[in-house]
Structures are given as structure tokens and as C-alpha cells.
């Protein structure tokens, strides 16, 4: 894109700057649009599984429902409770949404279509997504109210618990791909399964890892069945209870952006990212971003499906699953994957 702006008569630095800003907006704005549509899709899938209609009034098939909701919260009054720590109270939604957007900087939408093609892309995503817990803790503390506080404690303990196993799961994938660069991880999956399936999910050692990653992603983004932080029968609305107007909506936008990020990560780490599902020449005619978006939507459908069918966990069950099942299991797979690779690939 830099060349295009250079051809308009800018010097290199300015052309690079304008191209980068354009690239950032090309990620951030469609992402927000995507979040609006994915909330609509979530409600539609959920309704369909419950044999309801879901949103169907605003716009054709209710497609504009999310935008109507957005406009509504935008015009509402922002209530800052008198007991709250005002500065922190305002910072929390900004932090949550910023961090949710920021992780997308390194997601490869195609061989060239990546904003920052850094060599430690996966590590960057891991680092940025673990910052998300700050927004939760700050909002719960700054609200100075009982339910947000309890919810923030639960949410932070839950998020950091599952982050541990997500870290080990990422190590397994990195071991196999031999790189932290997301594009190289995608390319390493080319023709991985039986020589023609693109993706690590077909690998006997990595498929259990994928299942663990899927469940950990549900817990990390506080989706059903792990949505104890907003268990409405106990905690009203969780750590967002005291928020109103767009600050309230920013938590939701951030949460859905994180869910989309997890779906994108699953596609990139296990299902070949922007590669077509099978390594067959005519499929490469379709641009990579179409494959990636298709896989993201597929995984989001799985998330909605789980949400509509599975009852909520108890907190002790949640912690047991995280610490007593996933942690030892993911450690075992680090051992198994690295041992297998030592025996087969690095045996020299």
C-alpha cells in the first residue's frame, strides 16, 4: 500500500505513515462492524436452537438490530456512581476495548495482508490478551459496589487459570511449527494432514490440544458454560453492573472482539488460517481472507452452539477443570509433542 501512496507524490516516510494508518483503520473499523454482525448472529443462532425467531424487526431479517442497540446506548446518559473511583471507572472500558483491538495488529489475513509481521506474533497475542484482565479488575474495583467486586475476583481468577494452559498449548503448536510468526505457523500447516489437508487438527498429537484450546478459549472469554462472572442470578450483570451508556457497551464490544480473536487464533493455529482447507491448487484462487473469515465464522457458530446447549458450570468445577485437568494434561502434551519431535525430526 505504501507504493500506492508514493505514486500519489508523497515521499516514502509520509506514504508509509498514511498506508499504516489506512491499514489500521482497515482492521479496526471492519472489526467493529464484524462485532456488530456477530452479536446479531449470536442471537439468531441462539434463537434458532431454542426454536425462537430472534431479532427480526429492525431492518431486513433484523440485520440492523445491533446498530439500533448501539444508537440507543450511545444516546443514553452516562452514570458514574458517586462512590466510584471516577478516573479508574472511566479508564476500565477504554482499557478493555483498546486491548481487544490491539491484538488484531498481528493477525495475518493473507500472505501479505498483515499489519505488523513481527517474528514473535503469537507471543505478542498472548501478552496483549493477558492484559485484558486489567480492565476486568479495574472496573470491579473502581465501581465500589459488591456485585462488580465479586465478579471481578471470579473473572480474574478464571482468566489467569486458563491462561496457564493456553500458554502450554501455544508451546505445543510452536514446537511443531518452529516459529512464533503467525504467517510461518500458517505456512507450516500446508499439506500437514496426510499430505493434502491444511491444518494441525488432523495431527493425532495436536488434535487433543485443539480441543483443550477450544474449551480454554470459552473460559478465557467468559462464554457459556464458564460465564460465572455474569451469572445474572447471583451477580446481576457482573463487573459491568455499575456501567451505563457506551461504557457498558464497550465491555460487550471488547468481549466479542476477544471471542472473534480466539476464533481467529483457532483457525490460524489449528485449521490453516488463510490456507484453503485442503491443499488443492484451484482452491488457492479464492483469496486467503475469505478462507480465514469463513473459518472464524464457523468457530463462532460453534461458540454460539455451545452457548445455546450447555448449562453453566459451578465455580469449583471450573477451577478443577483448569488446574487439575488442563494444566497437567497440557504439560503432558508439551512432553509428548517435544519428545516425538526429538525422535522424528531432530534425531541427528
Amino acid at each position: 500500500m505504501t507504493e500506492f501512496f508514493q505514486s500519489l507524490g508523497m515521499n516514502y516516510e509520509w506514504a508509509w505513515f498514511v498506508a499504516t494508518i489506512a491499514g489500521i483503520l482497515l482492521i479496526a473499523l471492519p472489526l467493529m462492524l464484524g462485532v456488530a454482525m456477530i452479536i446479531y448472529m449470536d442471537r439468531k443462532v441462539w434463537a434458532a436452537i431454542n426454536l425462537r425467531r430472534g431479532p427480526n424487526v429492525v431492518g431486513p431479517f433484523g440485520l440492523l438490530q445491533s446498530f439500533a442497540d448501539g444508537l440507543k446506548v450511545f444516546l443514553q446518559e452516562t452514570i458514574i456512581p458517586s462512590a466510584a473511583n471516577k478516573g479508574l471507572f472511566i479508564i476500565a472500558p477504554i482499557l478493555t476495548f483498546t486491548v481487544a483491538l490491539l491484538a488484531w495488529a498481528v493477525i495475518p489475513f493473507g500472505p501479505e495482508a498483515v499489519l505488523a509481521d513481527i517474528n514473535v506474533g503469537l507471543l505478542y497475542i498472548f501478552a496483549v490478551s493477558s492484559l485484558g484482565v486489567y480492565g476486568v479488575v479495574i472496573s470491579g474495583w473502581a465501581s465500589n459496589s459488591k456485585y462488580p467486586f465479586f465478579s471481578a475476583m471470579r473473572a480474574s481468577a478464571q482468566m489467569i487459570s486458563y491462561e496457564v494452559s493456553i500458554g502450554f498449548i501455544m508451546v505445543c503448536v510452536v514446537l511443531w511449527a518452529g516459529s512464533f510468526n503467525l504467517n510461518e505457523i500458517v505456512l507450516a500447516q500446508k499439506g500437514h494432514g496426510l499430505g493434502f489437508v491444511n491444518g494441525y487438527f488432523f495431527n493425532i498429537l495436536l488434535f487433543p490440544i485443539f480441543v483443550m484450546f477450544f474449551i480454554s478459549a470459552l473460559a478465557e472469554t467468559q462464554r457459556v458454560p464458564f460465564d460465572l462472572t455474569e451469572a445474572e442470578s447471583e451477580l446481576v450483570a457482573g463487573y459491568q453492573t455499575e456501567y451505563s451508556s457506551m461504557s457498558f457497551a464497550l465491555f460487550w464490544l471488547g468481549e466479542y472482539a476477544n471471542i472473534l480473536l480466539m476464533c481467529a487464533l483457532m483457525s490460524i493455529l489449528f485449521f490453516g488460517g488463510w490456507l484453503p482447507p485442503v491443499d488443492w491448487e484451484p482452491l488457492y484462487v479464492v483469496p486467503g481472507i475469505v478462507w480465514l473469515l469463513g473459518k472464524i465464522v464457523f468457530f463462532f457458530f460453534m461458540f454460539s452452539w455451545v452457548m445455546a446447549t450447555v448449562p453453566r458450570y459451578r465455580y469449583d468445577q471450573l477451577m478443577r477443570l483448569g488446574w487439575k485437568v488442563f494444566l497437567p494434561l497440557s504439560l503432558f502434551f508439551v512432553f509428548a509433542v517435544s519428545g516425538w519431535l526429538m525422535l522424528t525430526r531432530f534425531a541427528a
Binding site: T20, I21, I24, A28, L101, L102, A105, A116, Y124
Partner: peptide, 10 residues
């Protein structure tokens, strides 16, 4: 550097 710019925009 693009990440830093992204941080500003976000």
C-alpha cells in the same frame, strides 16, 4: 512501529 500507531488509534 505499526503496533505503536495501532495503540494510538485504539
Amino acid at each position: 512501529l505499526p503496533i505503536l500507531l495501532f495503540l494510538g488509534v485504539a
